[in-house]
């Protein structure tokens, strides 16, 4: 009897962090040092709401940082990146599923030396009640709709008005235009 009880307690005490979420993942490698494929079910949460109790119904309309509260172990994952290799985050991809439970597939970063834990790149989403996955790659389309005045050739980050304004006044290095000029003359 005692033996069975001990075994049951040991089973319950098994750290959930040891769970392997790579099973069934079809995430594409980005050849990152600390990447681990991870597919899991989670509730999409607004992080400001989660910590402060300030909870708009739309989770901030894609302008607040979002988290994924993993169903299996209640661990809060920081959704840091979407699937586009274009300096783009994950909030816009996840916000449509505000406070809903979805399945995500992507890459977890785990680098204890830098303190990277439960940091995630979302590659695909299976919406609630559906079986087909959709790619987490809508950020640039959303940006284009929000910035019709910035239409043109080249990647969004060369055309974004706010970025261009800062570079025009502070320079690429952020130290002023004179330092930029000297750096460019020396290095290009």
């Amino acid at each position: 009897m005692l033996k069975h009880l001990t075994a049951a307690i040991a089973l319950l005490a098994t750290p959930l962090a040891a769970q392997d979420f790579s099973e069934g993942s079809q995430a594409r490698s980005w050849n990152l040092y600390a990447e681990i494929p991870a597919k899991f079910e989670a509730k999409v949460v607004d992080l400001v709401c989660e910590f402060t109790g300030d909870c708009p119904a739309d989770c901030g309309a894609g302008k607040r940082q979002m988290g994924l509260l993993r169903t299996a172990d209640d661990v809060l994952i920081l959704a840091m990146k979407n699937s586009q290799p274009a300096f783009t985050g994950a909030a816009v991809e996840l916000q449509p599923y505000c406070n809903q439970v979805i399945t995500v597939d992507g890459l977890m970063l785990d680098d204890p030396d830098l303190g990277a834990r439960n940091v995630y790149l979302v590659q695909s989403i299976v919406p609630p009640g559906e079986t087909d996955k959709i790619k987490a790659n809508t950020w640039t389309k959303v940006w284009a709709k929000e910035h019709p005045e910035a239409k043109g050739k080249g990647p969004w980050f060369r055309r974004d008005p706010s970025i261009k304004e800062i570079i025009a006044t502070e320079g690429y290095l952020g130290l002023g235009l004179e330092i930029d000029e000297a750096f460019i003359a020396e290095n290009f």
Partner: peptide, 25 residues
Amino acid sequence: SAHHTCALWCSAGGIPVGLLAEDGT
């Protein structure tokens, strides 16, 4: 300064911004 422009891109792109303290946190 080396990464200033890329930091602008990532911040505008909605990637979480961090505050890197002197102790590395």
